[in-house]
Simulated scan of single mutants.
Amino acid sequence: MDDAPRPLGVERVGTGDGRVDGLLGRLADLDELPVAEHQGVYEETHEGLRAVLAALDVAQGPPPPAAR
């Protein structure tokens, strides 16, 4: 019986945002990395996605005043 890790083969669809696609593409590297390094990749990806979302908030500016 072969207990070696195998790639999941999950197809990744692009988001259309190069920043997000680049970060998510980093997850594909997990198949080639030792398990001990996976947490670092997850943390980098999470922080990168948070930064992209924060940049979107800044680019849009504050919400309009509420209608009365």
Rank of each mutant, 00 (worst) to 15 (best):
D2T: 11
D2M: 08
D2L: 05
D3E: 14
D3T: 15
A4F: 12
P5D: 02
P5V: 08
P7C: 07
L8P: 12
G9V: 15
E11Q: 13
E11F: 10
R12L: 01
G14Y: 14
T15A: 00
G18I: 09
G18T: 08
V20C: 00
V20D: 01
V20M: 01
G22K: 06
L23V: 03
L24W: 06
L24A: 07
G25I: 11
G25M: 14
G25H: 12
G25N: 13
R26V: 09
R26D: 14
R26F: 09
A28T: 07
A28W: 04
D29K: 10
D29T: 14
D29P: 10
D29A: 12
L30G: 11
L30A: 13
D31W: 05
D31H: 07
E32P: 11
E32R: 14
L33I: 09
L33Y: 13
P34Q: 12
P34K: 10
P34G: 15
V35A: 13
E37S: 15
E37R: 15
H38C: 11
H38M: 10
Q39T: 13
G40H: 08
G40N: 09
G40R: 11
V41P: 08
Y42I: 11
E43N: 13
E44C: 13
T45I: 05
H46S: 15
E47W: 10
G48K: 05
G48F: 04
L49K: 03
R50L: 04
A51P: 01
A51Q: 02
A54I: 02
A55Q: 03
A55V: 02
D57G: 04
D57T: 06
D57K: 02
D57Q: 03
D57E: 06
D57Y: 05
V58Y: 03
V58R: 00
A59C: 01
Q60D: 03
G61Y: 02
G61D: 02
P62A: 08
P62C: 07
P62Y: 09
P63C: 09
P64F: 09
P64H: 14
A66P: 03
A66L: 13
A67Q: 06
R68Y: 03
R68W: 06
